[in-house]
Amino acid sequence: MSAEAVAARPWRRKLVPYFQAGPLTLVLALFLIFPIVTIVIVSFFDYNSVQIIPAFILDNYRDVLFSKVTWQTYLNTFGYVIVVWAITLFIGFWIAYFLVFHIRTNTIRIACFLLTTIPFWTSNIIRMISWIPLLGRNGLVNALLLHAGVTGHPLEFLLYSPFSVVVAFVHLNTFFMIVPISNTMARIDKSLIEAARDANASGWQILTNVVIPLSKTGIAIGSIFIFTVVMGDFATVNVMSGGQSASVGLMMRNEMSELQYPAAAANAVVLLVIMLLIVSAIVRLVDIRKEL
């Protein structure tokens, strides 16, 4: 349609963005909203060993909330969340700091940034498996430690243990911290830092009084990512612990493979509620809308 036609029919012009946003809305409605509604509905269903039975019972929730296993699993998962969060925040913050404040040319900054991003575009499972020849009983790390005389016998806790789960989590997900933090840091007005220096602030004071407070939004967004990724994970815990550690996602996965869908659904609803609470707490603490 020509410019005059558009001017002549403003209602058509007003409709255009709705058509443009339509496909996205449709995909999210069909494959996100409806499925979540389905989960909520099925969480009240009954089931036996072969099928799920439409019903309205609260047994699934009772089983989830009053089972000691659930609480222990949540505790274990929160343990992973806190450890992984602390490590990825530390690494992510300093990498972002290095890229934003120490790299002098834009080309090198983009190159370094890509270097940290490229693995994100490759297979997660393969990257988990890649730790086997390094951390295994006869792996490279043990060989090095034995050779250096640090230990007299191969360390068993390196692979198929909570240790290797944390290593893999950090390996796979630090990217989620680096991106939002460096994004926020890059927007810090450099003259603020000069001003702090002129006012005789030490490097440490500039860091704690200028850089960290102004990076809060990025830290919050990164934290939300790490929290949700670790909280809902099943594959990393399963592969890296050799099936010996528990997580909420893995608990659901096991129920799903035993066709106990209503139980898995009740678990999913509980997980979703807990995540909503924590994410909204983070959002309330730090206004992440500033970032958009």
Partner: peptide, 22 residues
């Protein structure tokens, strides 16, 4: 729609999988 898109990003994959499967 924006919040929905962001929710889509952070909702655990296993939930999406379970929901669509069911």
């Amino acid at each position: 729609l924006f919040y929905l898109s962001m929710a889509s990003l952070i909702i655990p994959s296993i939930l999406v999988s379970l929901g669509i499967g069911l």
